[in-house]
Design a protein around this nucleic acid. Sequence first.
DNA 1: CAAGATTGAGGGATCAATCTTC
DNA 2: GAAGATTGATCCCTCAATCTTG
Lengths: 153, 153
Amino acid sequence: LNDSEAQAWRGLQHMVMALDAAMARQLSADTSLSYPDYVVLVALTDRRDGRRRVNDLAGELGWEQSRLSHHLRRMADRGLIDKIPCDQDRRGSWVEVTAQGRSAIRAAAPGHVELVRRLFVDLLSPAELEALADIAGRVLDHLRSDPDGTDPD
Amino acid sequence: LNDSEAQAWRGLQHMVMALDAAMARQLSADTSLSYPDYVVLVALTDRRDGRRRVNDLAGELGWEQSRLSHHLRRMADRGLIDKIPCDQDRRGSWVEVTAQGRSAIRAAAPGHVELVRRLFVDLLSPAELEALADIAGRVLDHLRSDPDGTDPD
DNA sequence: CAAGATTGAGGGATCAATCTTC
DNA sequence: GAAGATTGATCCCTCAATCTTG
């Protein structure tokens, strides 16, 4: 990698690591949710019924099934979500946000969103935000078609 | 967050998560190094003497001291690095890459760099790479001046 | 007391193996 | 046999507490 490539690559990694750490610290200091908790609850409350199939949720979050399964168990233990057997496909199950989960995400969202603005969104121009979204889409599409980078070009 | 802001923010997180996972899988499949091992060894072998103060290394990597300390212990146990007492400041210590560590990073680097190219660098224009490096620098500078986003604007 | 560094405990993430249902 | 999901082992990361030297 030449200088400009390395700077982009390492800069990207450092930026996201530092931003994630800041988000995790803020949530941990001001709320009862961890950053992963927050992300799961946002996805669940995004639609009105507040439920998802576990596998769909994993895809939406970009998480491995096993990671999600472990995390959902911990969240269920703390009363943030419920697991409900799925009648249509009895291998699967639904995850549903509880009243307590809704209340926790409602309390946590404003502070989190404000931090995303202060540390990220407000520092970028609209064109830069669009360019970033475009780049991310391109890279993720390519990853989906070639998960381990083994294709000949 | 409006649509374009949310797409940039979530896209960025998903992209980096997926790229890191791909890097970790490739290293784990093809070499004896984990991704964190790789990053530490790259930093150490970047300068010719192959040694660093622990604290400097943490800053360079953007890692917390405690994380680095735990990781260095595991790497020392596996013979990849040595810890050497520092005479100038007897609170501190040096980390030095071993011959085995050098050999491991030499073996791992080409495959890793090729994957970074295939999954990331080759998908971006030079202007996009430069823009990304610029954005990362800006965000990280701001984080350094206001680590927890508590400043009034 | 502050700075460099380590430790132990506890939560989080990954891999391979497993179980059930399709 | 494959897909949805879980489990247990293991490694990794964070936090708070600690130790030593400046």
